[in-house]
Design a protein around this nucleic acid. Structure first.
Lengths: 156, 156
DNA sequence: CCCTTGCTTGGAGTGCGCTCCAAGGTTCTA
DNA sequence: TAGAACCTTGGAGCGCACTCCAAGCAAGGG
């Protein structure tokens, strides 16, 4: 009952296992979570979860008979991906673009892939930048360390 | 004529050579630059440079007899460091703290060193996060690739 | 029945890091 | 000496990603 596109968005469930930001693994064999459970799983606030929905970053979220949100495991998978993309510094607007493409179906396949590849390039560049910065920090810290023990003796 | 603290802030001039953000190497043997030259060197805007000064992120900047800013090589070194710290995601307020410590002199030596070490830890953590994200992206992209060639066949 | 806890909504507010504006003075080139 | 290009200031404004608020509905316990 899934399109291939939907399958691609299902979070590829066996994904790289990194522990969730604010702890709390999901209980097995459950597929309906209240917003406060999702808060516990993701570390996001309820405000933020509702806001994500308002701006179109979430798929349609199921509701209880009284209108309360009931998140599925798939929704949580999507939130995991969103969390990762957020870590890359991707603007929320771009994630919304991506979410829209997912909703539009299979014909956006290639465009989505390109977006992910562009993001990957950005992440690699960012890592390189950070490693560069790390070198500067190491340099500076060792300079402080030296000067602390034996004052002066500049320009290393 | 320099305190050790000032020396530590002098940018350890032979620092790891990464090309400046917006290109343009500094001409050798010059020590007075207008704000627009600094804009060219750093890629920051003149607005931002003045703002940095207002919030206390810069040391005292020299002025021409008519009151225009004249940046020294040391100021540019400091801006390089600020640029690196900015890349780490360090909040501007923390950089201001650091700048204040530098102005306060040698007795803030250890505290400064600790701040740099904390920053280094953050940067390492951030790199790890990004590498984790990179793994997810790789995984997802290869899934898209596979599905593109031979549709369906879920849960990799 | 009341009280607490948790959820709902649209819209307003916050903090950060710039970014720009108006009005005026300075410096350079011709 | 003109004109363009550049510099100065304090303060207001902006875009992003939340973050919070008020007012109200629903369910469960004592």
């Amino acid at each position: 009952m899934e399109t291939t596109a939907a399958a691609a968005e299902a979070g590829t469930r066996t994904s790289v296992c990194s522990s969730p930001p604010a702890g709390h693994r999901r209980p097995a064999g459950q597929d309906k979570y209240t917003i406060s459970e999702v808060v516990a799983f993701t570390g996001l606030t309820a405000h933020t979860l509702r806001w994500y929905e308002r701006i179109g970053l979430m798929p349609h979220i199921d509701r209880s008979h009284t209108g309360q949100r009931r998140y599925s495991n798939r929704d949580l998978d999507w939130l995991d991906l969103v969390g990762k993309l957020r870590l890359t510094g991707m603007p929320v607007a771009d994630m919304v673009r991506y979410a829209e493409m997912v909703r539009e179906g299979d014909h956006t396949y290639q465009e989505r892939c390109e977006l992910l590849e562009a993001t990957r390039r950005d992440v690699r560049a960012r890592i390189a930048e950070l490693q560069d910065t790390l070198a500067v920090l190491d340099h500076k810290i060792s300079f402080y360390g030296d000067a602390g023990r034996a004052p002066a003796s500049e320009r290393s």
